[in-house]
Amino acid sequence: MTPEPIELPSSQGELRHHVLSVLVENKAGVLSRVAGLFSRRGFNIFSLAVAPTDPSRRFSRITIVVDAASAPLSQIVNQLDKLINVVEISHVNEQSVVERELLLATIGVAFDQMAGALALCASFGAEVLDATASEVTVTLAAHPDQINAFCELLAAYRVDQLHRTGLVALPRLTTPPVSPASAEPTDPHSN
C-alpha cells in the first residue's frame, strides 16, 4: 500500500484550509454536535483531533482542519459559536500557529534495505518503535508538511500500515483568540 500524499497543509498558493482550535465543554455528545454541525452545513472536515485539556476534565480542545472552499470562514466560526457547548474558537492561520501531527507506519524492509530505511528515519527524526528482521514500525511527530515529505520517501519501501492522527494546533502565544465578529474582515471568501 503506497500512501497517497495527503493534500493537507500546503503553505504555497491560495488558502486551502482553515485550522480552528475549539475549546468545548467536555460533556457527552459534544463531539457529535460539532461533527453534526459540520455535516449539516456542508463544511468539509479534513481532520479532527480531540482530547480533554485540563486536569478537571471540564473542557476538551478540538483541532479541526476544515476545507476553505466549503464555506466562508465567518460562517463556519459563527455557526460553530452557536453550539451551546462551544466555549471559545481560535482561528489559527499558518503564520500564527504551532502545528503538529503524529504518524505511525509499519514498513516492510528487505535485509539490504534496512540501513537506508533507518537512515531515512534518522534524518527526519522519526523513532523506531518496533522491529523484526523484515519490518519496522516507526513514529514521527512533526509539522504536516514534513510528514507528507516523509510519507513520500517511505513509498520507496513496502508500506504495510500507515496511520496519521490529523493535525493538532495551538495559536502562537502572541495571537489573541478570534471572537466570531472579528473573523469576518479577514475572510476572503465572503460574497
Binding site: 466562508p72 465567518s74 459563527n78 455557526q79 452557536k82 466570531p180 465578529a181 469576518e184 465572503s190 460574497n191
Partner: peptide, 16 residues
C-alpha cells in the same frame, strides 16, 4: 445571530 450576517448576502453594514 451573527451567523445570519453574510450567510446569504454580504452586508455592507452588519449590526449584531
Amino acid at each position: 445571530d451573527r451567523a445570519e450576517h453574510g450567510k446569504v448576502r454580504h452586508p455592507d453594514l452588519a449590526i449584531v
